[in-house]
Design a protein around this nucleic acid. Structure first.
Length: 259
DNA sequence: ATGCCTCCCCGAGGGAGA
C-alpha cells in the first residue's frame, strides 16, 4: 500500500498539478493539507473519477485537510481532541481497510511564527494535544500513522541553511523538543528509517529561487507506530514535481507498507 | 530578509504562509 502526504497550498490552485501527480505516482492513499477550501467547495469529482474515496475537513480560506483513498475508509473523525474551542481545520483520521486495518491521521501542525506570541503558544499547545492523541494511538498496539505538514525541522541536516532558521518557530529548541517528546513515545520517522544524510527536503520557499538553489527544509513527516513500522517497505520524497508548472511550495512524501 | 512569492479572501490590498 502506497501512502503519501502532500501540502498542496490550495486545492483550487493545484487543480492541474495534483491530478497530474496522482496519475503518475498512483498512490493508494493521500493525506492532503492546506486545501484552503470549505467541504462543499472541494472538487470531489476530480478524485472520485480516478477511483478515490474523498473525506474532507475544510474551512474558509485557510488550513483544511483531506484524505483520498482507493481503499474503503471507515470511522472518519475530524478535529484534534483536547480543545473544543479550536475551530482550525488541521486534523482528520480514518481507518483504511486493506488486507488488514490501518488507522491514519492527517495533520497540518500550526506554523507558530512569530516567536514569541500567541501563534507560537497555539503551536505548542496543539503539540501537547498531539502528544496525548499519540499516546492513545500507541496504546492500541496496532498499525497506525500520523502524517502531514508538521512545520518542524527535526535536525540541522533537515535544512540547507539551519542557521537561517535558528529563531524560527519551525526550528526553535522548544519546538524541536516538543516534536521529540512525541517521537520518543515510540514512533518511527519513516523517511529517516530508510534514507539518511543531508539534502532531503520537502519544502522550498517560492522566494529568492529557493528551489533552484536547493535551499529547502524537511518538515513533512510520517510517524509510524511500532506495528506500522514493522510493515515499512519504502520511503521517499517526490522532489521533482517542485520544478513542474505551477507547483505547491511543498512536495509529496511517500511510503509503502506491506498491507 | 520586519519577506525578494503565492495563496486565499474577493474584485483592492491585506492576512498568512515558513
Amino acid at each position: 500500500m502506497k501512502i503519501a502526504t502532500f501540502n498542496i497550498n490550495g486545492i483550487k490552485a493545484r487543480s492541474i498539478a495534483l491530478p497530474d501527480w496522482l496519475d503518475a505516482a498512483q498512490p493508494d492513499v493521500v493525506l492532503l493539507q492546506e486545501i484552503k477550501s470549505v467541504d462543499d467547495g472541494f472538487p470531489r469529482a476530480l478524485f472520485e473519477d480516478r477511483g478515490y474515496n474523498v473525506e474532507t475537513h475544510g474551512q474558509k480560506g485557510f488550513n483544511g485537510v483531506a484524505i483520498l483513498s482507493k481503499l474503503p475508509l471507515e470511522d472518519v473523525t475530524r478535529g484534534l481532541p483536547g480543545d473544543d474551542s479550536d475551530e482550525q481545520a488541521r486534523w482528520i483520521e480514518a481507518t483504511v481497510i486493506g488486507k488488514s486495518a490501518l488507522r491514519i491521521c492527517g495533520l497540518y501542525l500550526p506554523n507558530g511564527n512569530p516567536v514569541p506570541g500567541p501563534k507560537y503558544d497555539y503551536k505548542l499547545a496543539w503539540m501537547d494535544r498531539l502528544h496525548a492523541r499519540a499516546q492513545d494511538l500507541l496504546a492500541q498496539e496496532e498499525p497506525a500513522l500520523m502524517a502531514g505538514d508538521y512545520n518542524i525541522i527535526p535536525q540541522p541536516e533537515d535544512a540547507a541553511r539551519p542557521d537561517a532558521w535558528k529563531d524560527d518557530a519551525l526550528y526553535r529548541p522548544q519546538s524541536r523538543a516538543a516534536y521529540r517528546r512525541i517521537l520518543n513515545l515510540g514512533f518511527t520517522d519513516a523517511f529517516r528509517a530508510r534514507v539518511q544524510g543531508p539534502e532531503h527536503y520537502s519544502f522550498w520557499d517560492y522566494q529568492a529561487g529557493a528551489w533552484n538553489r536547493n535551499d529547502g527544509i524537511r518538515i513533512d513527516h510520517f510517524l509510524l507506530t511500532p506495528q506500522a513500522a514493522d510493515l515499512l517497505q519504502d520511503a521517499h520524497i517526490d522532489a521533482a514535481i517542485r520544478g513542474y508548472e505551477k507547483p505547491s511550495d511543498h512536495v509529496p512524501v511517500c511510503i509503502s507498507l506491506d498491507l
